[in-house]
Structure formats: structure tokens, C-alpha cells
Amino acid sequence: MRQTRIPTPRVATLTAIIGFIFIVFVPSAFAQDWGGQVFIKDRLTVVVEIIVFSAAILLYTRWARKGKKLFVRKIAGIDAIEEAVGRATEMGKPVLFVPGIGDVEDIETIAGISILGRVASVVAQYDAPLMVPTRYPVVLAACQEVVEQAYVEAGRKDAYNEEMVRYVAGEQFAFTATVNGMMMRDRPAANIYMGAFFAESLLLAETGNAAGSIQIAGTARPEQLPFFIAACDFTLMGEELYAASSYLSHEPLMLGGLKGQDFIKVIIIIAILLGTILMTFGYGDWFKAIFDVP
């Protein structure tokens, strides 16, 4: 795989960030009258949290760049993607990828599109047919770009077809009906659902199950997870969806971000335990106030 250089923030970047904040926000604040609160002081805790969070991720990314070995646990659902594509190739049947029904401003949709890029690379290498139905035109444009680029990088530009990624319907259940129809007519060997899903999650997953496809789903919405778990072979839960793209890339720099995230989780667990103990003994009000953000 071609190794590309991924930049890590240096002094110049940090200077640019601080400069940007000063240029855009501080003079704009002074351009108004001096009265009132310009900076919302009650949100100071969030500033500290963002700084600690960013520092942890950037630190681990830096270590990864220096070649430090980072252990990331195996995620069965993501490992199954390649097997599912291989199965589709052997059966001569398509792979169906649904990037959720959210618009592009939804971070889950962006995670889904990122995973689509990795999946499309594998599909292009295996030469399996790919179907990507979308609900929003902006998502359509992004998915087309991502899939085309994956085919170009795999050296299979000739195999790319614009019809692989298509807009099907803007209405939630019209979209669901169309995708269900595609499943029953084309009988894809593998269905991959990654992104924001709502009431249609079970309608899609049950139809895929009835069609006999291997199903891999991923969403960050806890209320939809039980449906996917019941009807799919593998399910990526919550943060695993956001980790999938980094995991599939096998790039140490991307995995560094995941380790930074784990470090923050440890801090949060300690904070929860500390808060529980303090509140139990009646000394926790000051601690609770720190995290009360308006």
C-alpha cells in the first residue's frame, strides 16, 4: 500500500490556530461595545476538556509517527468486511453499502463515507460489483468521489461505473423501500450498513437477512443497536464506527488517534468513580458544578 505523509501539527500550525482565533474573534468582540460577556466563562471547563483531549490524541499520533508500537484490539465486525467482499467475489454477487440516511453534516455519515472509501478499495481489488444507494444529493456527490478515487488508487479506473453510487429517494421510507427492493432483486452477498440510522434500521436488516446476505452494521445510535444486533452477523457499536476507518487503514498514525481516545476514556472512568464516591459521601457538589455546562 502506498504510504502517504500525514501531517502532525507543529509550531506553525499551532501559531495559525492561535492567530486565527485572535484575528477572527478578538477584534470582532472589541468592535462591539465593551459591555456584556464576550467570552462565555461558564464554558471554560469545555476549553480545558478540549485541550486535554486534543493533546492526548496528538501525543499518541506523534508517538505512532516515531514508530512506537501501539496495540489496538481486534474488532471482529471490521475484520469481517474483507471476508464478506471475498465471499461476494466468489459468488459473483454485489456488495451493498448503505452510508446511513443522515446528511453530510452528521459525523456518523462522514464516518460511513470514510469506511466506504476503504471498502471500495477492497471491492476494487477483488473486482466485485458495488451498490451504494444514498438519500441526500450531497452525500451522493461525496460517495461518488470517494468510490471513484478508491478505484483509481486500486488501478481499476476502468471498472468504476457512476451508477454504482446512486441517489434513490429523499423520503426515509421511500429510501428504505428502494433499498429493500434492491436486496430482494439483486440478492447481494454482503450488506454493509455504516452511518446514521433511524426507524428503517430493522426494515433494512431483516430484509437483508431474508435475502441471505452476510450483514455488517455500524451505528452510534444506542436505540438502533438492538435491531442491528438481532438481524446482522456483525455490529459495530458506538465508537467502533468511528474507529473503523482508522482500523481499516492499518496506518500507525491513524491508530494513534484511537489510543489517545482510550486514554481519555480512562480519565473519564476515573472522573465517574471519583464523582460517585464524592456524591455518595455528600461532598460532590463542587465536583458536579465543574461539569455543569450551560
Partner: peptide
């Protein structure tokens, strides 16, 4: 637990996008 994990994952992904570490979403590796 799932919501906290998902929120952290979303925030980490946003940070990777803002800093240009994650570029797959625009068709670049």
C-alpha cells in the same frame, strides 16, 4: 457507556478531520 464512547469517537473523528489526518471522506488517502 455507549453514548460516552460514541461521543468520544465522534469528537476524535472531528479532530482528525479538522487537522487533516482523516481524509478518506473526500476521496484522498
Amino acid at each position: 457507556g455507549i453514548i460516552i464512547g460514541a461521543a468520544l469517537g465522534g469528537a476524535a473523528m472531528s479532530l482528525r478531520i479538522i487537522l487533516g489526518i482523516e481524509r478518506t471522506y473526500m476521496g484522498k488517502n
